[in-house]
Structures are given as C-alpha cells and as structure tokens.
Amino acid sequence: MDPTRVDIVTLPIVEIELSRLSSVFSPRTSGEDPEHVETLLSAEGELPPILVHRPTMQVLDGLHRLRAARVRGDEKITARLVDGTESDAFVLAVEANVRHGLPLSLADRKRAAVQIIGTHPQWSDRRVASATGISAGTVADLRRHGGENGNEARIGRDGRIRPVDGSEGRKLAAELIRSDPGLSLRKVAKQVGISPETVRDVRGRLERGESPTPDGSRRLRAEPQPLRWAEPDFGRAADRDRLAVLERLKADPALRLTEAGRILLRMLAMHSLDGQEWGRILHGVPPHLCGVVAGFARDHVRVWGTFADHLENRATDLAAG
C-alpha cells in the first residue's frame, strides 16, 4: 500500500507523551507562528489530533498544536500515527500543511517540491503539484532547473505508470477514436495505456481539427515569461453553444423535476461563468490561500473527469444493451 495514499481520518487516535515527539521534520522552514499558537491557545474545545510518523516519532502535521500543548503544560497529546519511509512521510507532511491550518508559504512549497522530485523522481509533475499545492508547470520548471535526466515512465496521481513521452499513445488513441467514435474514454485509455484525461484531450483536439499530440505550445507556456502575471484567457469558459445546451437541459423535465437533476443543473450553471467573472474570482483569492484553493480546483477537475467517464460508460453500456 502506498503510504502517501492513506486516508488519514480513518487512522485510530492515540495519546502520546510530548517528550517522545520531534519537530525537526517539518516542511515549514520559517518555524512556528506565535500568533497562530495564541489563536490555538484561545480556542474552545479539543484541538484535532496531530499527525506523527511512527518509526521516527516526527511530527508531520500539528507543530502549532504541539507548541500550544507545551505552553499549557500538557504531558500528552492526541495523535494519529502513520508508517512508511521518511520520504513518504515528508509527502504526507507537505500535503497536510498545504490543505488546512496555517498554509505553507510559496517558498516552502517550492522547496518541498524539489525534495519530492528528488525522492520520488518517477512521480509525474501533476502528482507532485497535487501534493505541494503549486502548478504542474512550476514543478516542471523546478525539475528542469534541478538537472533531472528524466525517467522513461512516471507515476501519476491515480497511481498508474505512464511514459514521459506520450506522443505514441496519443497517436494510437486518435486512430481508435477515428475508427470507432463511440468508444468511451476509459476503453480507449485501457487499450492504449494512457489516462482517460489524455484521451479526452486527444478527442478534443481531433474535434477541433488539431493534431492529437501537443505542438509544443504547452511546454513553451511553462517557461518563465517576462510578463509572469499576464491576464489568463478565460474567454471560452462559457461559449454560446454550451450555454444554449445548458438552457435546453434546464427545460428538460427529466432533470428539472427530480432532486438529483436540479442539483446537477445548479452545479452546471455554477461552472458556466463567462471569462470576466472567472477573472474576477481569480483576483479575489487571497495570496496566502492560492495554494489551498488550487488544490481544491485540481481535485474538482479530477472528480468531474471521473463523473464524465462514468456517464460515457453508462451511455455506451445502455446502447449496447
């Protein structure tokens, strides 16, 4: 079992003596924030358990809770224990500190990404990005500047092994899609050995009359640019055709008159914003929360992708039945 895939909330809670714990393992290079410790000291109720690496007794998540317990004079603290190697434990520490509590600084997240690239070189840029709360493009930048000589394959966020150069897989996927347009994303992905999301990208390229393989523009965008904070293009976030489809869905009784259908319509409408509105939301995210919100956004991309795959599979199965 991959220790970095552990569902932490399912681990049993135990009490540990404070004297047994070490805090030198933290990815937070700036140390503890006194104001955050004071906030925890003034909080009512019991604080959530900390996360500890069992083999070394290093605190992975909860340095401020540990400090608050020591200031109060406590002798023990509640904790959840995880096993695995120190490198896997570091990944868990980064993920925990990125997702909640006092988020890691951007500098700390970049340092953590460099360390994870070194200890898990087979991981894809997206998987490292998901763990550290920075973009996959930034991870690619860090990987290049670190002088990595590359691996023939990398492990993605879903745990599957894929080749770094996926151009051949994309070409095979394009041939399958052309020969049988009704094949689901998952069936194409399984036959070719690439991810459903890559198949989705290939299908979209074919529909737009483009080559199934990227022409290098994505890689160019990942390079450092003089205008680092140029306004992103959300211009096609809600084009007329898609909005027209949404209006037809809203009028369909099969959706409009059922609870699940109404929930789906609200979700679709919520994501059908125009480019200007997306830009306003983007600029409204506070800098110290960018990493956390980015992590949630990537998670939602994965959920929507899985949802779409299941719908396509269901449609295929119904048509075949």
Rank of each mutant, 00 (worst) to 15 (best):
V6I: 11
D7L: 13
T10R: 12
I13G: 05
F25H: 15
S26F: 04
R28G: 01
G31A: 09
E32F: 01
E32H: 08
S42A: 13
S42L: 10
L47H: 04
P48H: 08
P49M: 07
L51M: 05
V59D: 04
L60G: 13
D61T: 01
G62V: 05
A68P: 00
R70L: 08
D74M: 08
K76N: 12
E86C: 03
S87W: 04
A89N: 03
F90K: 03
F90D: 02
L92G: 11
V94L: 01
E95W: 06
N97C: 01
V98I: 02
H100P: 09
L104Q: 08
A107S: 03
K110A: 02
A113I: 02
A113E: 02
G118V: 04
T119D: 00
H120F: 12
W123N: 04
D125N: 09
G137W: 09
T138Q: 15
V139L: 05
D141L: 15
R144F: 11
E148G: 15
N149T: 15
N149P: 11
I155S: 03
R160K: 10
L172G: 09
A174T: 00
I177W: 03
S179P: 05
S179N: 04
L185K: 03
P196K: 05
E207Q: 15
G209N: 14
S211A: 07
S211K: 12
P214D: 07
P214Y: 04
A222L: 07
E223V: 09
Q225D: 09
L227P: 05
P232N: 06
G235H: 07
D239E: 10
R240G: 10
R242G: 10
A244Q: 10
L246W: 01
E247M: 12
E247S: 09
D252Y: 00
D252W: 01
E259P: 09
L265M: 02
M267N: 07
L268W: 02
S272I: 05
E277P: 08
E277L: 08
L282Q: 08
L282Y: 11
H288N: 14
C290D: 12
G291L: 11
V292D: 01
F296N: 15
V301C: 14
F307N: 09
H310T: 14
L311G: 11
E312P: 10
N313R: 10
A315R: 14
T316Y: 08
T316S: 13
G321L: 08
G321D: 12
G321T: 13
